[in-house]
């Protein structure tokens, strides 16, 4: 079963249109939504949670239409971390824990306490005195403590230092060790997504540029460097996108279409993202 199924989703604002968007998150997998700030990631996530009106299309979450009356209760199964943590500033961790305990039917206090301790969160500090990193950690602790089956994470790792980020990514990996569990994670930091995702969807100016299985994508594509003349000799179908450099050309190419012996480098997700976005700006579409 797909944990998330989005078909033809659209929503227009003055000056920005999202979609039409088609997206699948197979159960047991991690789907990364990569895109610059303002690409429509947070809008997509709010649409999934049905806290934003959609103009068209359909969204099924854990098999249920998100406009169904039962969706409110289904939110017990969804752990959400928003790009900024949203608790009134005078609350302390204790108050927030009490709110969660009273709100979720399967709140796991022991798990929450364990995470709070692991993250070293202060118990009696007011939320407004939390650093951005601490706010994010608290939100993550909440999302992981009510026995959710689906995590929806909007820039969940953005405010964290690299060491903590790695620790949190491990927590997410642990979460999907159960094959009933899935994660949708959005980020503008593609290195985080590269580390953790099974699938990647690339969002740019409200449109999906591509969705792909991450490892296959990075294995099928390669970076090639050479002169402009050498580029001419390459088969057209081998070239996905090209960038002019001061002393030559770098191209994103399809490994299988390249001649044997060509010097190829394995791309990072970041490379693929930048190449495709820049190519998009030139009007041609890569993959």
């Amino acid at each position: 079963m797909n944990a998330l199924e989005i078909r033809g989703l659209t929503r227009s604002f003055p000056g920005f249109t999202l979609g039409p968007l088609d997206l699948n998150l197979p159960g047991g997998c991690i789907l990364g939504l990569v895109g610059q700030n303002g690409a429509g990631k947070s809008t997509t996530i709010r649409l999934i949670l049905n806290s934003l009106r959609r103009d068209g299309g359909s969204i099924r979450v854990l098999g249920l239409d998100n406009q169904d009356a039962a969706f409110t209760q289904l939110k017990n199964d969804i752990g959400v971390v928003l790009d900024t943590a949203n608790f009134p500033e005078t609350l302390t961790l204790k108050h927030i824990a009490a709110l969660m305990r009273g709100s979720y039917t399967r709140w796991d206090e022991a798990r929450f306490n364990e995470l709070v301790q692991r993250f070293g969160l202060p118990e009696n500090k007011k939320f407004r005195d939390f650093s951005r990193g601490m706010q994010q950690k608290l939100a993550i602790a909440c999302a992981l403590s009510h026995q959710a089956r689906l995590l929806i994470l909007d820039e969940a790792t953005a405010g964290l230092d690299p060491l903590v980020r790695d620790e949190i990514l491990d927590l997410f990996r642990e979460f999907v060790a159960d094959e009933e569990h899935s994660i949708l994670i959005s980020s503008h930091i593609s290195s985080d997504l590269e580390k953790i995702c099974d699938y990647i969807a690339c969002l740019h100016q409200g449109k999906l540029l591509f969705t792909a299985e991450k490892d296959a994508l990075l294995e099928d594509l390669a970076l090639w460097q050479g002169s402009a003349e050498q580029l001419e000799e390459l088969a057209d179908e081998a070239i996905v996108a090209v960038q002019q450099q001061p002393y030559g050309v770098t191209a994103l190419v399809k490994r299988a279409e390249m001649p044997a012996g060509a010097q190829l480098e394995k791309p990072r997700l970041d490379d693929v993202f930048l190449f495709v976005v820049k190519q998009q700006g030139k009007g041609a579409c890569g993959k």
Binding site: T72, L74, I78
Partner: peptide, 18 residues
């Protein structure tokens, strides 16, 4: 007013509340 300043409505609509 406190809720609005923190955008608590975004958090609340992610929770099991109608």
């Amino acid at each position: 007013a406190y809720d609005e300043r923190a955008h608590f409505e975004l958090q609340a609509t992610a929770m099991p509340y109608s």
